[in-house]
Design a protein around this nucleic acid. Structure first.
Lengths: 190, 190
DNA sequence: GTCTTTCTTGAGCGGTCGCTCAAGTATATA
DNA sequence: TATATACTTGAGCGACCGCTCAAGAAAGAC
């Protein structure tokens, strides 16, 4: 007896992710979202409950896609090359709405306000860091990198470097590709 | 015949800088500023003209202080040690309202909106990068680091690393001091 | 003291914010 | 076809946004 929604929920979340990713939390208004998702306020709130709830879903999708990309790169090229390709990919992907990491943008924007979404973003970052550490472990098992390194420390540094180069890639007049290449060389030297 | 303002303009700019640095552009309201600067709307607009104009002054002060700090560190310890100490300082300075760089926060928040302040922030970042390059040049002149490196490339990478570790330092559960130490070691190896 | 000039005050402007809700519309079941 | 059950619509809520301006208060010049 009911009636189906006329939209694809997952597609709406993807569009919201792109808007939030590009414009940030305070920089994205309900009006922006209504225009992009083609949803009137009533439908919006029936579907997602609040702007905050949708942002959380967007973060989740963003993180899930990141994990999937890394997994695929690893499967095709092995751990170290996957980490090298990832850096290049995130700063060159023209399909992305921004070069900088959505999680870091969220963190920097909302941490000082003690906003729950800042904690959510940090959790996703920690998960991503763990994923990096797994790849460094695999690289050691395969003998690609020296056993003397601690995979967790390598992952921590790699993530920091990644945040830095992605922020740099958001700037005009900075050759982020060159920085990415240096990060890749650092990985090769391990 | 006139009447002097009851405030110290430079002190107000410093307080505004701290608020903006911590809470960001959209996250800082006129009400916040009025409370912190102890200024009613009328006085505020008589003194600074607009929220945007004050933010620009705050960025300028932020950048000027950064240059002065680097200059002082260089004078006391020499170029390479200055760059090493700077990383430690920015992520450990409890007096600062945030660990992350105000220029990068501004850039990430406002670039997608084509906001003039994003360009302003980027200009300050470029100036800072030039300052880093100068120090690397001096280090080469003194023989502290190898001549084969290009100071501009070293500066670019150093700034990227700095942005990364400062964003990481804003997170909970991340030992940014350890990352800073690694960056310092990288500098020592040049 | 008087005058002039500036600084200070705060009510309140038009606009936008995130969000609500009652009314209208479409669809799957019976 | 009749009914029940969603989904869709959009006017508009109270709160807050950045900002204005007329009136009052204070201080240097004479």
């Amino acid at each position: 007896m009911p009636r189906k929604p006329s939209y694809d929920r997952d597609d709406l979340i993807a569009r919201a992710r792109d808007l939030f990713w590009q414009r940030g939390w305070w920089g994205t208004s309900l009006k922006d979202l209504e225009a992009s998702l083609q949803l009137k306020p009533g439908s919006f709130y029936a579907a997602f409950g609040s702007k905050e709830a949708l942002f959380a879903l967007a973060l989740e999708k963003y993180a899930a896609d990141g994990h999937e990309r890394l997994r695929a790169l690893n499967q095709e090229h092995g751990p170290i090359k996957a980490l090298q390709y990832l850096v290049e990919f995130v700063i060159e992907n023209d399909a992305a709405p921004a070069r900088a990491c959505m999680l870091s943008k969220t963190l920097l924007e909302l941490t000082a306000h003690n906003h729950p979404l800042a904690r959510t973003a940090n959790k996703h970052l920690l998960k991503m860091e763990s994923h990096f550490a797994e790849l460094f472990e695999q690289a050691q098992s395969k003998g690609d990198i020296d056993d003397s390194h601690d995979p967790k420390l390598l992952a921590r540094r790699y993530q920091s470097d990644l945040l830095g180069v992605r922020a740099s890639a958001e700037r005009e007049g900075v050759d982020a590709g060159a920085i990415a290449a240096e990060i890749g060389q650092d990985l090769a030297r391990l």
